[in-house]
Amino acid sequence: MNVVVSDAPAIEVTNLRKVYGQGHTEVVAIRAATLRIGRGEIVGLFGPSGSGKSTLLTAMALINPPTAGRIAIGGQPVMDGPRALVDARAFRRQHIGFVFQKPNLIPFLTALENVQVALEINDTPARQARQRALDLLGYLGVGPRATNLPDALSGGEQQRVAIARALANDPSLILADEPTASLDGALGRQVMELFAKVAHERRAGVLVVTHDHRTLDVFDRILDVEDGAIRERANPESDVQQ
């Protein structure tokens, strides 16, 4: 059984290290990364391509085991080195929400069903799942498009549905991988503000990997990743070092 302590940090990563390959082909993707994201906090993760952002994200999402280090989510230790301390898939289902660069909605499900499916695979009864999905879509401003298939939605609407899906099971941690990359500036900002709203109103820890410097003011803290190392930026309003 997964026990997440409500006042514990959304995620705590300690001395995380990820190495690909062996011997002369060895590549260190992350070196001794340590970070902490509290509940209700939105954190931006910046860094150039190949700096290890995606590796860090997938390790935190429990889909890419680290070589060393520890991860605790909601106060519960979940990874100790490459060893999973919980059923990773069940834990993701219950405690982690994902938003991607592309919305990645399931094309044969309507907006409502895309949210509903996340609830139903977490054993929420169909009727309750439907109502909660409708509520979330309404909260994110796409309620009127609930019965539309993804093809019929604009990019911004699709991303809102994806956020609704990420919020469906009321996760303690939301991981977003460049969620505004395919959106125009205004829409991108709207989505970022939505993440901030979710973090603050729903007390979720939100980590956003992004290159979009126009939305720096949205984040409570900014982390820079470079050559596999994480450094917290002193002044969140300042530009990226790279």
Partner: peptide
């Protein structure tokens, strides 16, 4: 055709039986 959708379902925690 739906490998990506299946991967997504796995990512959001769908059980193998689903």
């Amino acid at each position: 055709d739906k490998l990506r959708d299946i991967a997504l379902l796995k990512l959001i925690g769908a059980r193998n039986r689903v």
